[in-house]
């Protein structure tokens, strides 16, 4: 099944915590409710911490996928205005 196209892409490869979350949070703030953000990252802890934080903010985590030994893709759908 093909995925819905993301409304915004964020490349934070090379960025470390907590700026991975800072940049992801700002990207979600810039979306409308219902829109999807796709994040590509390579900081291992952030693959865990960003989804947790997004759930705490009230957003949905659609996917967390390790696409190669060093990189992950996370898809977030904005559910609530922040």
């Amino acid at each position: 099944m093909s995925e819905v196209k993301a409304d915004k892409h964020l490349d934070i490869r090379g960025v470390v915590c907590p700026y991975t979350l800072v940049k992801s949070k700002l990207a979600v703030e810039s979306l409308e409710v219902g829109q999807i953000l796709e994040i590509i990252l390579d900081y291992p802890e952030a693959a865990d911490s960003i989804p947790k934080a997004m759930l705490n903010y009230g957003q949905s985590v659609l996917k967390v996928e390790k696409i190669n030994p060093k990189e992950w893709i996370i898809r977030i759908r904005k559910e609530v205005e922040d």
């Binding site: 907590p18 700026y19 800072v22 940049k23 700002l26 703030e29 922040d82």
Partner: peptide, 22 residues
């Protein structure tokens, strides 16, 4: 828009749900 320096300086504010970038 925040500069990279501002992102760092205010990071602990921005990640608070009650504050955020806005």
């Amino acid at each position: 828009e925040f500069t990279e320096e501002q992102l760092k300086r205010y990071s602990r504010h921005i990640i608070l749900p009650e504050v955020g970038g806005k």
